[in-house]
Amino acid sequence: MLRIEDIDVFYGDAQALDGVSLEVPEGAIVAIVGANGAGKTSLIRTIAGMHRPARGRILYRGADIAGWPSHKVCNLGVGQVAEGRQVFPTLSVAENLAMGAMLPRARAGREQRLESIYAMFPVLAERRAQAAGTLSGGEQQMLAIGRCLMGAPELVMFDEPSLGLAPAVVQAVLKTVRDLNRDGLTCVLVEQNVAVSLKLASHAYVLENGRVTLSGTGEALLGDDRVRRAYLGL
């Protein structure tokens, strides 16, 4: 569904990604793990059209979308739940969700999607008139996921969805990712909780200093001594 081929990304003279290649099969959860500053968010933003790679290809269903503007990438069916949630704080819950449905691809079926999101996250239905900035961190993360789903994506990139959340809320958010995948959504998961993300993922990649240094099934990487020492403290 998504294939990254040898992409390089720079911020000025600083190289953020160096020859990164990976594949995301349709229907899979693919995890991308690594330390802070490894290039994970740069990769997500580049796929989403927020950064232009200096070299390489980004193939989505066979079309090279490298360098496309982000609104065109979204309208192809590539969604993003950004790090830090990025809700519109002064807009209501309902208005935030409506913003997610502004893509041309999302106009048909908008009301049905809205009802399914309210069924998935009942607290959002209860607080639909409340300003998004007054929600708890967990509720804002639910809203960010719901807003992304309003765009009718076929692939969603989750960038650190558990960051800053209480442990019980983290479990609920990651369960949502698993449930969405079971319903047919292809997922890319960038997550600080390495053990949980590798358990969820069918395949995973380790990024270090902008390069892919390891890849394999989630289960295989979970048992890899290098991963266990570097990220699991074992």
Rank of each mutant, 00 (worst) to 15 (best):
L2M: 03
I4E: 00
D8C: 08
V9S: 00
Y11W: 02
D13H: 14
L17S: 02
V20R: 01
V20M: 04
E26Q: 11
E26L: 08
G27W: 02
G27I: 00
I29T: 05
I29Y: 05
V30W: 09
A31D: 10
I32V: 11
V33W: 13
G34I: 03
A38W: 04
T41W: 00
S42W: 00
L43E: 01
G49C: 03
R52T: 09
P53Y: 04
A54D: 07
R55A: 12
R55S: 09
R55Y: 08
Y60E: 03
G67Q: 14
W68P: 05
W68H: 12
S70A: 12
C74E: 06
L76M: 14
G79L: 00
V81A: 04
Q86N: 09
F88M: 11
T90M: 14
N96V: 01
N96P: 02
L97W: 02
G100W: 00
A101T: 00
A106Y: 05
A108P: 03
E111A: 14
E111S: 13
Q112Y: 06
L114A: 07
I117L: 10
Y118G: 03
A125W: 12
R127A: 02
R127M: 02
R128Y: 01
A132H: 13
Q141P: 09
Q141E: 12
L143E: 10
A144T: 03
M150T: 08
E154S: 14
E154A: 13
E154C: 13
M157A: 03
F158V: 01
D159M: 06
A166K: 15
P167W: 15
V169E: 13
V169T: 14
V170F: 09
Q171R: 15
A172H: 15
V173P: 05
L174T: 08
L174H: 11
V177Y: 01
G184D: 06
L185S: 09
C187P: 02
E191M: 07
A195K: 12
A195N: 05
S197G: 03
L198F: 05
K199C: 00
K199Y: 06
L200R: 03
A201C: 04
A201S: 02
S202P: 00
A204M: 02
G210D: 01
G210W: 04
R211Y: 05
V212S: 08
T213P: 01
L214F: 05
E219Q: 15
A220P: 10
D225L: 15
A230G: 11
A230E: 09
L232K: 15
L234C: 12
